[in-house]
């Protein structure tokens, strides 16, 4: 599938670690302002693909363009600055354990904006409220928060710099069904709240049920290549045996 003016465009991307090929001549693009999920079995190359999108890995061959910028053409300092276009929710939130919830969210603003301390804290508090964190938890350390709350704080931190692309790495792994639903609702809610500024959401997941519920587009990655890439309704009807096996597991 090809899109006009996509958020991300990947052309003939190959990544080898020694003799092992993880991504194999992969080409596809991700549309702006939509929720796209990259599904796949463990070891299919999802995390490696994510690291290429972020510019944390260099391709063995091929190109990755994000918001019209070929990542290969950016020098390390420019690439670092460019990453401010991304927000990311990590699998286990990856909150800084020496900082409180509000400090975690204010941290990117401290590093990259000229906001005063008061402004940063105010904005961080607003973001925490927007993801459903109550005021009583603002001063809590990550170790004092539940798994679901940590995810919310992680999402608020990811949104702190108004990213153009929000990445979710296995956002529901290890959560109970109720918290899983809450996180999925939060992803949809965040996408819709930020749709006016064209924010793109990319989810890396192997949670089929959630993917089919919240995504606009689904790509299926197998052994380093996209074997199916369709709008979600068409994906459900895919005749690809691998996709069917995955859906019916």
């Amino acid at each position: 599938m090809k899109f006009d003016n996509p958020a991300i465009e990947i052309n003939n991307l190959t990544k080898q670690f020694g003799k092992h090929t993880v991504l194999n001549n992969l080409s596809f693009s991700i549309p702006k302002n939509k929720i796209t999920t990259i599904l796949g079995f463990s070891g299919a190359g999802k995390s490696t693909l994510l690291k290429h999108i972020l510019g944390l890995h260099q391709p063995t061959s091929g190109t990755v363009s994000v918001l019209g910028n070929d990542l290969k053409s950016l020098d390390p300092m420019k690439l670092r600055e460019f990453r401010q276009n991304f927000g990311m929710l990590f699998q286990y939130a990856a909150l800084f354990d020496s900082m409180t919830a509000v400090e975690n969210v204010a941290f990117p603003m401290k590093e990259f904006t000229d906001f005063s301390y008061e402004e940063r804290i105010k904005k961080a508090q607003d973001l925490l409220i927007s993801v459903g964190i109550k005021e009583v938890s603002f001063g809590g350390l990550p170790s004092e928060l539940s798994g679901g709350m940590r995810k919310r704080v992680g999402l608020a931190r990811g949104l702190a710099l108004n990213p153009h692309i929000m990445l979710y790495d296995e956002p529901t792994t290890g959560l109970d069904p109720i918290t899983t639903k809450m996180v999925n609702d939060l992803i949809v809610d965040t996408a819709s709240k930020n749709s006016d500024r064209g924010m793109t959401s990319i989810i890396i997941s192997h949670d089929v049920k959630a993917t089919l519920r919240i995504s606009d587009f689904v790509a299926f990655l197998d052994r380093g290549n996209i074997v199916e890439y369709l709008p979600v309704e068409e994906f459900k009807k895919s005749t690809n045996p691998l996709v069917q096996e995955f859906i019916n597991l």
Binding site: L54, L56, R83, M88, F90, Q91, A94, F96, D97, E111
Partner: peptide, 18 residues
């Protein structure tokens, strides 16, 4: 080491902080 295994180091890199 703890920051590395809990992805806090990755979080810094993703934010554009070395």
């Amino acid at each position: 080491g703890t920051m590395k295994v809990t992805e806090q180091v990755d979080a810094l890199e993703v934010m554009g902080i070395d």
